[in-house]
Each structure stands twice: as C-alpha cells, then as structure tokens.
Design a protein around this nucleic acid. Structure first.
Lengths: 149, 149
DNA sequence: GATTTATAGTTTCACCTGTAACCATTTGCA
DNA sequence: TGCAAATGGTTACAGGTGAAACTATAAATC
C-alpha cells in the first residue's frame, strides 16, 4: 500500500454543488416553457420576458424594462425592435424627454400574452406539484433570502 | 364608474413566478463565479464545467461529458477543442472503439482546477451563509425533488 | 461477409449575446 | 448662457450557441 505523499485533488461534486444544481433546474424549466411558445408564436425567450413585464407594468421605458427583467439593455433594445416591428408592442416618445421611449403591449401583444401566460403558469403548477405545501413555503422563503440584494 | 365588461388580463407577477426567480438566481450566482476565473485563466464557463466534470470522473468520452454537464454535444466538442489546444486536457483514443475519445485533465489542467475549485466553493459558502441550517437542509431536499427525472 | 443502421464527434449555418463605441438629448454647474 | 458629464437607446464587432448535415467507425441484421 503506497503512502499518500501528494495531497489529493479536491474536485467539486457537481451533483451536490448548489450553483450547478440551480443552473440545471433553471435551464430545464425555462426551456420547457420556451418550447411551448417559440414555435407557436415565433417568440424568443427574451421577447416573452419583455412582454411579460410590459403586461404587468405599462408605459415603461426600455431602461426600466431592462431593470425589471434583469436583462442587458442591448438585449432589450433588440427584443423591442422585433416586438415593435411585429406589431406586438407600441412605442412612443416620452413627453418632455425625447430620449425615453414609452412602451406598452398592443392589442396583438395582449392577445399573445393571454395565451402564453396561462401556459407558463401551468408549467409552474406542474413543477410545484412535486412539493407539499410546507415545502413550497420553505422554497419561497429561501428564494427571498437568496435573491435579496 | 364604468362597469368592467371586458375580462381583465392576468399578467404574470414575474417577481413571484418561480421559473423567473430561479433564472435570476442561477444567472447571478453563475456569473459572479465566472467573473473570477474568466479573466484570470482565459476560461469560459463551458470550459470550466467540462474541466470540473473531468476532475471528478476521469477517462470520460465527450458524449459522457455532455451528459454529465447537461450541455449540448456541440458546445462540449468546441470547449474540448480549446482545452486540448491549451494543453489543459489530454485526449487519446479509446482502445477498441476508435470513435470514442478518452479525456482527462493534464497537469496544467489540474493546476487550474485546484485554483478555481476553492474559489467556486467559497461562492457557494457565501450564498449558503444567508440560510440557517434548517433552511439549507430544506433547500437540498427541495432541489432533489425538483431535479428528479 | 455484406449491407444497413446506430453512434461519436466535428463542421456549417443562422442566430443570439455582451462589450464597446456611438448618437441624441438632458442635466449639472460654473 | 455655455459646456462638460450623464443618460436613453442603437449599432458594430467579436464571439458563443443549437440544429442539422456530415465523416468515420462500430454494431446489428441478413
């Protein structure tokens, strides 16, 4: 039996490494939702996120959309260009500040939103169905803590 | 006061929508770890993931790396090309199956691993420091359930 | 044993992404 | 007022990414 002179390496156990587990879970969930709307509506995930924010908060500027979605402002700018082009978002210019845009869902945008939102909620429901009531509360509390600034 | 003839839209409350919260958390965490090694070691996130898997399980094939990292096989192929080129991974050919490659970290690869791994663990520690012991156990149990196939 | 089918891995293509540079407008301040 | 600094948003560039096609090898079937 050889003595262990050289200290052993200490590889991460990825399967127990929290950042890794979060990444796998998040990608799996987001992608399974995205699969449902990308095909049906020619809607990218970033576009959907922008629409979801505008559904909840009207008359935001592009910068505010970026803040709320935590997306890059360039990504938002491009998503908005496509959404406006497709007639899903109405863009006007802010009174008194010609740099700011004022954004809201169009009728067509709302129509899509009203189909996609329940679908997204259904996925969330399926995911949460794996947990009991106590666990759901725990998860919410834990996420609140981990997401706090 | 106008009567509400048209049914109201029901926008998602993104800030309480589980898939969205998971996505924000996962991106924030992964990126803050990545910031530490991308600059210092010219190492992309996908490359690091490949290295982490090869640290834990030697002599995998590219396909097995893809399975374990849950990355696309094309992404793995390219990450491996860069890692082999940089001398961080040794690639040989499987005895008895000339299609398979046999991958392992090189000395240089291990040296980098041994610097990055503690750094990643430290980030995990900082994140978990926001939770008490009970919450950490709860989180683990919950993630086990949500990640089960 | 020859031929079809499956598998490992790479390349191509079309697109998405972030960083940095940029333009227009507004704000701060001397 | 005039001018520097800050801000909202877009564009250019340099990668990174997945789907599909492709090459090489192995396994299955006849």
């Amino acid at each position: 039996m050889t003595s262990d002179a050289v200290p052993a390496h200490a590889p991460l156990e990825l399967e127990n490494f929290l950042p890794y587990r979060l990444s796998i879970l998040s990608n799996t969930v987001s992608q399974s939702i995205a699969e449902e709307y990308t095909g049906r509506f020619e809607l990218s995930m970033t576009e959907w996120r922008v629409m979801a924010v505008l559904a909840r908060f009207a008359d935001l500027s592009a910068r505010e959309v970026a803040e709320r979605t935590r997306m890059d402002k360039v990504a938002v700018s491009r998503a908005l260009a496509r959404l406006v082009e497709a007639g899903r978002v109405d863009r006007s210019i802010h009174d008194g500040d010609k740099r700011r845009s004022v954004l809201k869902l169009s009728e067509a945008g709302w129509a899509i939103h009203d189909e996609v939102a329940p679908l997204a909620r259904e996925h969330e429901r399926e995911l949460l169905a794996r947990l009991d009531v106590a666990e759901r509360e725990q998860l919410n509390r834990i996420l609140d803590k981990l997401l706090a600034p």
